[in-house]
């Protein structure tokens, strides 16, 4: 399961970050590292980007970027 495929209110635990270069490094630097719990809070009115909650802060990324983040243990709140 990738992060772009889950609905607002759902979350999961990151297993891997795909992609490369600046983008991937940026995701890692912002704390999207393996074993981190992340939750999708919202989708922007035009359908993209999405709003995430992790490490007790709020982050927004595009769906394209979210599709590179692999999840396990998907949960709903």
């Amino acid at each position: 399961m990738t992060l772009d495929n889950i609905k607002p209110g759902q979350g999961g635990v990151i297993t891997a970050i795909g992609g490369q270069g600046a983008l991937r490094r940026r995701l890692l630097d912002m704390g999207l590292t393996p074993n981190t719990r992340v939750q999708v809070r919202k989708v922007a009115p035009m359908g993209d980007p999405i709003e995430l909650s992790l490490r007790s802060y709020v982050l927004t990324i595009r769906k394209e970027e979210a599709s590179k983040i692999e999840l396990k243990e998907v949960f709903s709140i």
Partner: peptide, 12 residues
């Protein structure tokens, strides 16, 4: 060239 990725904090 690669635009800077849109990975942005939404501060409180």
């Amino acid at each position: 060239g690669e635009p800077v990725p849109f990975v942005m904090e939404l501060p409180a």
